[in-house]
Design a binder for these strands. Sequence first.
RNA 1: GGGCGGUUAGCUCAGCUGGUAGAGCACUGCUUUCACACGGCAGGGGUCACAGGUUCAAGUCCUGUACCGCCCACCA
Length: 931
Amino acid sequence: MEKAYEPRGIENRWYETWESRGWFKPEGTGTPYCILLPPPNVTGTLHMGHAFQQTLMDTLSRYHRMRGERVLWQGGTDHAGIATQKIVENQLAAAGKTRHDLGRQKFVERVWEWKEESGSTITRQMRRLGASVDWSRERFTMDPGLSAAVKRVFVQWYRDGLLYRGKRLVHWDPVLQTAVSDLEVDNEERDGSLWLIRYPAADGGEGLTVATTRPETMLGDVAVVVHPEDERYRKIVGKKLKLPLSDREIPVIADEYVDKEFGTGAVKITPAHDFNDQVLSKRHNLPVINIFTLDAKVNENAPAAYRGLDRFAARKKVIADLEAAGLLVETKKHKLMVPISQRSNAVIEPMLTDQWFLDLTSDKGRKAITEPALDAVRSGKIKFVPENWNTTYIQWLENIQDWCVSRQLWWGHQIPAWFDEAGNIFVGEDEADALKHAKTPPVGKLRQDEDVLDTWFSSALWPFSTLGWPGDTPERAKEWQDFNAFLPSSVLITGFDIIFFWVARMVMATQYFTKRVPFKEVYINAIVRDAEGQKMSKSKGNTIDPLDLIDGIELEPLVQKSVASLLLPKDKEKVEKRVRRDYPEGIPAVGADALRFTFAALATHSRTINFDLKRCEGYRNFCNKLWNATRFVLMNCEDFKPTTVRPPLKTPVEHWIVSKLYDLSDELDRHYRDYRFDLAAQALYEFTWNDFCDWFVELSKPALNGEDQTAADSTRHTLLYTLAALLRALHPIIPFITEELWQQVAPKLGVKGESVSRQTYPQSKDLIQPDRSRNAEVEWLCQAVLQIRSIRSQMGVAPSRAVPLLIELPAGHKIPLTGTEPYLKFLARLESIRILAPSEQPPPSAAAVLDQARLLIPMAGLIDMAAERERLAKEIARIEGEITRAGAKLDKPDFVQNAPAAVVDKERQRVKEFETTLQGLREQSTRLAAL
RNA sequence: GGGCGGUUAGCUCAGCUGGUAGAGCACUGCUUUCACACGGCAGGGGUCACAGGUUCAAGUCCUGUACCGCCCACCA
């Protein structure tokens, strides 16, 4: 074995073995366990969020597989409508073309080409991470099977009266020229103005003044509304105003919607371009005047002077014209929230367009879809982890709007609806099916709806469409055989940002079509931030490519890479500076295992985790520690051939480590059940480093090198046994290194098997049942070692220098460990150990008190008397403090009366032990003082 | 405006059903003794944001305050 752990060499070879032998496929007859991979964008690349999330999923998959369950980790990719279409459009733009130059068919072909070209990038990266997805069942949301499911669902919902087409105000992205859902809009605070504009009365009177942040929309105004109890406007309600710049008259109406205190208390109403105004216009039966084209230019409904102007140019002209007309009363600075399209950063324009909606708000829609989705969580059929996400989910559903599912894109599932020349709608899985269900024959030729479905429409079906639903074609029937086993899936691991986009919609669709919940638990993982808690973003230069952590990268290539992926050239300098500051040496190759262990260790139930390279390096060191511990064990077992897997356990130390292992396995079970990856990782870390390496390996050395061959062999045996179990316990988190090491350890122990991944996970029922009767002896030994080391260190005794130890015991007492000498001598670096005869006077010594025993290191030129006095005094003061505190507690009658007897006893016991120690220390102090 | 988090050692975080604070990193000293210097040993460092309350006992439960953060909805 190499002296140092080198991840590069070992990681590549194992993944291929695992995958090619089909070990990621569901196997056996155990309890089904299923995890759905949130399908990443097909053309995407792996980022830290993916890597984190997938590490947790993989850890769970491997853990449950090793427990003998029938595990399916269902993987695949999403066609990601807008995102993917945009990438290809950008490619075209670089060649000076638009998608319209190609035409729909050619363009979609082009997107498919890009999908084929780049679609395997992320799945390849997932393999580097070790993700044990069953790739033989990989799905893509535009696969024939999944597309068939999409059609089936659309048609069914339509025929059940839940999908409708309507001309409604939607969030319109004028750049991408598509509707987007309310979830795809961010509100951004921007500096703007509040313009106060006078609308004269139609009869020539003064009229009134309205306040608006969007003066250009006045071209589409249909009324001005004031509060019914607003004294200022009482007289003018019901009268007409002359709408400036347009040759129209509009009424003044009253509605309680208006806030009297804001602005002028008079609001202009533009129902075609404002959600609130639309509600009002409906309430008051006002007309609707759309004044914008789909690319947000003023259309022919507006006065000729403004036609063709972009909405922002129109704003300028409107303001200028108002000013010229003397109607602009005032311009105030005003902060306002501007709706921004997440996809294009364009300002969203509310626009009246024909779209498809899923009914979630009528009595029918509520009953059929929304209420069951609420009930699934309220009743506990679906549990969020951490559970406070229940509230988020429930509140969103309680205030949900109908879902606009149509998008004016080319890439995606084209809507299975046809229009005849009279505008009648025919819905079906294909044209023939649509006609078959038609109530009236079509007028003229049929034309399929050009729009596609929101990406999340197909994602919503993921839990059952990937399992072959509806299973009514030969291929699908074959896929569907696992439907019963794997739906509902066991757990969904995903980010909070897609609870609404995806989680809720999966619950809706899955329950509607399968009468089952899609998953039993939803673990909401934290968001990965940088070490300083900043959100990772390319323009800040604080992103890390998980692959760069696995493989390492030099500074210069890292700088190049960070700068190359920037969208805005102006960020270049800033990003370069930051990268050079954060990674002056580049990024060291820590390997996939260390990265995974880091993610597991960071996975607390908090909302964000800060990824720190330092921490990652720490876990790389941990892997190295494990590597070298294994080297030690193997080096010491070269000629050892056990005949059984289980060791005979000859020494107390062996019993001790086996009992620690047993406890560890229980603890791990609990942590995995609770999704406490951090605590599982910590327990494993502590066992490996502290219990196994620092104590057991060290304590094994005297036995291995001792005379007693039985004890030596037993120790070898226990080293192998414990290590093999530890490797199994670690495997779900760090699969590569554990596989590499297990391959060498298992044969030594006589364990058969091709892979650690196919061994059982250490569970207490399968482990050696611990005999704890002698653990106290080992604890005593460890305490003695610690005490002596502390004296040595504080007294400045050179580590290389062996010192004698004298043990002073009250008459009739013994050291609570048989055959202690070799251990103590080795671990505390002692030259000799002697127990003083009952009446023997010890020489001047530095001392520690351990139970009844006094551990004495004779001074004789080694130790400075003054320093020892000081050390003793400090220790005495500390223990006196403890006794005072505990004593005060015990003196309170309330405590003794009210606290449980066990707590009181424990406190008394503590005081007793402190007093024994204190007495010993004081005596020792007196002795020194007398010298 | 509604909702949800957070505030514990210099930094990042654990601390389960209340019993008197822990880890990693960083820091200090010693140490290249034959698994590992990606190491070993020893150490320093916290009135657990603040104020009340419940209790024999409160980082731990309750109420309130302050600050930080996130989500949703928003006044034209």
